[in-house]
Amino acid sequence: MQLVIVTGLSGSGKSIVLKMLEDSGYYCIDNLPATLLPQISEHLSNVQHEQVAISIDTRSASLEALPDNIRQLKSQGMDVQVLFLEANVETLVKRYSETRRRHPLSKDTSTLAESISHERHLLEQLVDLGLRIDTSNLSANTLRNWVKEFVIQKNGELTLLFSSFGFKHGIPLDADYVFDVRCLPNPYYDKELRPFTGQDAVIRDYLEKQENVHRMYEDIQGFVSRWLPCFVQDNRSYLTVAIGCTGGQHRSVYLVERLGAYFRQHQQKVLIRHRELEKS
């Protein structure tokens, strides 16, 4: 049985993910108490559900039991994957204002922002259990596509996730490492190159003529290669490397594509995301 656990902040998109998984054939359970995870997993396995998704968040009791329960299931040979969804405070406040829903931790004595901050604190122990996804700048459709990529990955081997982004749209919350490449020559200032992206040949040709671009690539590639074995030994499932330029259209996209191609050639599992391109 493949088990996907969906957790994270209220308003970050867990319902969208759970509905997408249900439409994809998963047997879904919303708001399961964390202490019941081992029992319900055993029951569903016995009734031959091959794909199961369970949502566990601050509405559930005994969250502190979740990390040990996940480790227990993995030690029994179950394919367990964890999705942690989050978003920045501004985005969550806006979403709650638009839907006019009440935050699950809200009280008469606390503001919405304070309730969000309290929930983030309660979920701190769950952040590193699996893949983090910052949904602040994601459309619902992009989130669905990213989750589809996630669930098809096989368990047991670390996956490298390279993501491009634009600093003017905010730093992604889900990155383990962030590299700033705004110091590199910017094709944006050439009016003929501006409409293209780092996935286009004209941008690749332009950047590959720049010596500092090669130096930056070699430094990032060397850093990730050098420290990757340590993350493997630490039993990490995912390592997210975010590369940012000003708008997230040219330099960061080019470097993410190039790094992804390099590590794929070296038998590494790789996912590639371009936050601003996918958003547009």
Rank of each mutant, 00 (worst) to 15 (best):
S139C: 01
L73F: 02
L207M: 13
G248T: 13
T7N: 03
V181K: 05
T109P: 03
V202G: 01
P67Y: 08
H103G: 03
Y262V: 15
G8V: 07
P187M: 07
D190G: 00
Y177S: 13
S136H: 10
A65E: 12
L271M: 15
R100N: 13
T246R: 02
I40P: 08
D200E: 14
E86C: 15
D57E: 03
T246M: 02
I203G: 03
Y26P: 03
Y177C: 11
Q249H: 12
R258F: 00
F263R: 14
N212Q: 06
H250T: 02
K209P: 00
R132H: 05
V147I: 14
D205Y: 08
E192H: 14
L173S: 15
G156S: 12
V52Y: 12
S15L: 00
I54Q: 06
L158Y: 09
K154V: 07
N31F: 04
I40D: 09
I56G: 08
H103L: 07
E257R: 15
I203F: 05
P67F: 05
Q199I: 03
T197Y: 05
R204K: 15
E218Q: 11
Q268I: 13
A242S: 15
L277Q: 12
Q221H: 12
M216S: 05
V232L: 05
L112H: 06
Q233R: 09
K279F: 08
Q2H: 09
V213S: 13
Y26G: 05
V52E: 07
A65K: 13
K191M: 04
T240H: 15
Y188L: 02
S97T: 15
K209R: 10
Q2G: 08
E114W: 02
N137M: 09
K94L: 11
A175M: 09
Y262N: 14
